Computed example of a mutant assay.
Amino acid sequence: MVPWEDMDPSAQILFVEKKDDLNELVLKKDTYYDVSGYSSFLFVYEVNFHYSELRTKQLLEFLNENIREG
């Protein structure tokens, strides 16, 4: 947390009405940690979210629409 007076004027602000709206489903290429010693896969993705039924359904929808055999 930063007091308003000390905040960078060009900073972006995230406003949510309730804490449950934070930590949405995020899929990103690569990972926070280097996993090259554990896997030789060319494409590695990281999935982050706080569990909720809606977010789980969103993840399953994404996987069903985007995973292709091979």
Rank of each mutant, 00 (worst) to 15 (best):
M1C: 12
M1E: 12
M1K: 07
V2R: 08
P3C: 09
W4L: 08
W4G: 03
E5S: 12
E5C: 09
D6C: 08
D8Y: 11
P9N: 13
A11N: 15
Q12N: 15
Q12L: 14
Q12A: 15
I13S: 10
L14Q: 14
L14P: 06
F15I: 15
F15W: 14
V16E: 13
V16K: 13
E17V: 07
K18W: 07
K19M: 11
K19V: 13
D21V: 09
D21M: 15
L22T: 12
N23D: 11
N23C: 06
N23K: 10
E24C: 10
E24P: 10
E24Q: 14
L25C: 03
L25G: 05
V26T: 13
V26Y: 01
K28S: 10
K28P: 00
K29T: 01
K29A: 00
D30F: 02
D30Q: 07
D30A: 02
T31Y: 00
T31A: 05
T31C: 06
Y32C: 00
Y32Q: 01
D34S: 01
D34G: 01
D34I: 00
V35T: 02
V35F: 05
S36T: 12
S36Q: 10
S36A: 08
G37I: 02
G37D: 05
G37H: 06
Y38A: 06
S39L: 11
F41W: 04
F41A: 02
F41I: 01
L42Q: 00
F43C: 07
F43M: 04
F43V: 08
V44A: 11
E46S: 11
E46M: 09
V47T: 05
V47S: 03
N48A: 08
N48K: 11
N48L: 09
F49M: 13
F49Y: 14
F49L: 10
H50A: 07
H50Y: 03
H50I: 08
H50T: 10
S52C: 04
E53W: 02
E53M: 06
R55L: 06
R55E: 03
R55I: 04
T56C: 09
T56F: 09
K57W: 05
Q58D: 08
Q58P: 00
Q58C: 02
L59R: 03
L59G: 03
L60T: 07
L60E: 08
E61Q: 13
E61K: 14
E61G: 10
E61H: 11
F62A: 06
F62D: 09
N64M: 05
N64Q: 08
N66A: 12
I67M: 14
R68I: 10
R68T: 12
R68N: 03
E69R: 13
E69T: 05
E69S: 12
G70S: 12
G70H: 02
G70V: 08
